[in-house]
């Protein structure tokens, strides 16, 4: 599932120069825009959601999953993966700072369930979670899926 959907253009490893949660959300969202998965308005919605709902998208230690309600601005369900070179503080009391970012875009309410399921399996595996911080390139990353 992830191998098919998380294509190389949706992955950015060891990104530098991002210092705020807004920078990070925008960057991870731009990957979805460039890949034709979402309109730029979806990225703005992810930012709005972060501002109104807070840092709960930091769902585990060092791992954030920005997402938003789609309103016609998601062309197809997708996910991007960004690994930050410098960790960024999102304001979460337990799980800061963030290093791994998975920006999620679902079209209808539940057409992204398969993506979430695969992501949950990947991140629920401690070995693989650790490996995500270490893989050198996209090819190595793919071996984890």
């Amino acid at each position: 599932m992830l191998k098919k959907i998380l294509t190389e253009d949706l992955v950015a490893l060891d990104v530098t120069g991002l210092t705020t949660p807004e920078d990070v959300i925008r960057y991870s969202g731009q990957l979805l825009v460039k890949a034709g998965k979402v309109q730029p308005s979806y990225v703005e919605k992810m930012l709005d959601a972060f501002h109104s709902l807070g840092p709960y998208i930091v769902m585990g230690p060092g791992i954030a999953m920005p997402h938003a309600h789609a309103e016609g601005d998601v062309s197809c369900p997708g996910i991007s993966f960004v690994r930050l070179k410098e960790p960024v503080v999102f304001g979460h009391p337990e799980n800061d700072p963030v290093v791994l970012v998975f920006a999620l875009a679902g079209k209808a309410h539940d057409d992204h369930i398969d993506i979430l399921q695969s992501l949950s399996e990947l991140l629920g595996d401690e070995e693989k979670q650790k490996a995500l911080t270490l893989v050198a390139d996209y090819q190595e990353l793919c071996k984890l899926f």
Partner: peptide, 10 residues
């Protein structure tokens, strides 16, 4: 969760 389809679904 905040939106009802991300972390809550997971």
């Amino acid at each position: 969760c905040g939106m009802g389809f991300g972390t809550s679904l997971m």
